[in-house]
Computed example of a mutant assay.
Amino acid sequence: MKNALNIGLKYAKLIAMTTSLAVSTMGSAFASNDSYKFNLALESGDRDSASGKSMQMWADLISEKSDGRMKVNIFYQGELGGQQELFDQLVKGNIDMMLTWPQTSYDERLGVNYIPYLTLGWDDALKAYGEGGWLKAIFGPLYKDIGLKYFGPYPEGFGGVATKGKYATSYAQAVEQGLKVRSAPVFPLPQTIQAMGFQAVPIDWNEVYTSIQTGVVDGDSSNVIYWDYEYFRDQLDYYVHTKHNFSSYAMLMNDATWEKLDAFDQAIIENSAAEVINKQFIDAKMEDDKWIKKAKEDGMKYIEPSVDDMRIWVKKVREEVWPIAEESLGKDIMDKIRANASVPQ
């Protein structure tokens, strides 16, 4: 818990300058009299989930800082459609704001968020995704190109592979067991799972439970343990913490909607987003540790692969997936990744 708090405090220092700047902008601008009602959607998570509570916090801060002029209606998972459908509506402007894993259908370069084994620990993830981090500098312009305003990352932690009846802690074991696991249908997550020795089955989030229940797949992949425990614990027996991806949502807004706002109201929304992101970086590690403990107490087997097995996975996945990713992301982005990615211990 102490380590988690230290990580959060490091991030808090990183964004302090940005938050102060936003406050300064608000104070120096002329107050707006315009009223707005925004629709905010979550691709996953109900109102009681950590992400649901965070989005309520964002909505409350916006309302509070605008003296009630700006209100945000929140729609939780499944209420307005699936992941891709919601992202499409955000780009079109039918949804104003969204918390989502980046969809690569408009620009494959957004797959940078899913490059496997990019960071290998919390400190490295903080440096990459945090305010002033090299990854955040890549994301902003990419989202702008498809008509979205990027406020920053909403981190959850490192993903794993959760399965039913059998499990694998290495490439060889995954191949031997013939494990089929669900992957989010976003490049290069299915390719990553395949390179790790599993059989990747791309499935939308709303269909995961039924797919596990009926045997279409043996489990789920790339999520922090919270999602597999909270939503599928009656189906899943094992959680192997492969840490092949850093699970990080994006807080976004339709850029045309954003540009219609004056500087004062933009500052309110952006400063409120910064507060949510700041809190989440403090909470994320502790939240992940809490759910690992809870899952273990309730009978789910939590397993960490050996250092040697992790080295093999990191080496194999980087050798197989990174060259494929370069075809979509381009040499410039991949050169930045190779220069900044974590070095295996």
Results as ranks from 00 to 15, higher is better:
residue 104 T to D: 15
residue 159 G to A: 02
residue 172 A to R: 14
residue 248 S to E: 07
residue 224 V to W: 02
residue 310 M to E: 10
residue 105 S to D: 14
residue 175 V to S: 04
residue 26 M to V: 04
residue 222 S to N: 08
residue 19 T to H: 07
residue 117 Y to S: 00
residue 135 L to F: 01
residue 254 N to V: 04
residue 237 D to F: 09
residue 83 Q to Y: 10
residue 22 A to Q: 11
residue 3 N to T: 09
residue 107 D to T: 05
residue 228 D to H: 05
residue 252 L to S: 03
residue 68 G to Q: 13
residue 260 K to Q: 11
residue 207 E to Y: 14
residue 335 D to I: 07
residue 197 G to K: 10
residue 87 F to V: 06
residue 112 V to Y: 00
residue 28 S to A: 13
residue 261 L to C: 12
residue 251 M to I: 14
residue 35 S to L: 06
residue 62 I to R: 08
residue 259 E to T: 06
residue 110 L to H: 02
residue 122 W to Y: 09
residue 47 R to Q: 14
residue 3 N to V: 06
residue 51 S to F: 00
residue 157 G to N: 05
residue 227 W to A: 03
residue 290 K to V: 07
residue 238 Y to K: 07
residue 86 L to E: 14
residue 264 F to G: 02
residue 6 N to A: 12
residue 135 L to G: 04
residue 137 A to G: 01
residue 41 A to R: 08
residue 231 Y to T: 05
residue 252 L to Y: 08
residue 331 K to V: 14
residue 32 S to Q: 09
residue 131 E to S: 10
residue 16 A to T: 10
residue 72 V to A: 12
residue 219 G to A: 08
residue 225 I to L: 15
residue 210 T to W: 08
residue 202 P to G: 08
residue 342 S to R: 13
residue 78 G to P: 05
residue 202 P to S: 08
residue 322 W to S: 02
residue 27 G to D: 13
residue 266 Q to C: 00
residue 144 K to F: 09
residue 86 L to C: 08
residue 173 Q to W: 06
residue 272 S to M: 12
residue 117 Y to R: 01
residue 224 V to P: 00
residue 230 E to T: 13
residue 92 K to N: 07
residue 269 I to F: 03
residue 41 A to Q: 10
residue 267 A to D: 01
residue 322 W to E: 10
residue 174 A to N: 05
residue 7 I to Y: 11
residue 16 A to P: 00
residue 242 T to N: 06
residue 82 G to P: 02
residue 184 A to N: 12
residue 34 D to W: 00
residue 228 D to K: 08
residue 43 E to V: 15
residue 156 E to N: 07
residue 92 K to L: 11
residue 143 Y to W: 05
residue 211 S to K: 02
residue 96 D to S: 11
residue 200 A to R: 05
residue 280 Q to G: 11
residue 258 W to M: 11
residue 31 A to W: 12
residue 84 Q to M: 11
residue 154 Y to Q: 01
residue 37 K to L: 12
residue 162 A to H: 01
residue 75 F to C: 04
residue 205 W to C: 00
residue 173 Q to N: 06
residue 161 V to C: 08
residue 279 K to W: 10
residue 179 L to M: 06
residue 75 F to M: 07
residue 255 D to I: 11
residue 151 F to T: 07
residue 11 Y to T: 04
residue 259 E to I: 03
residue 260 K to P: 01
residue 101 W to V: 09
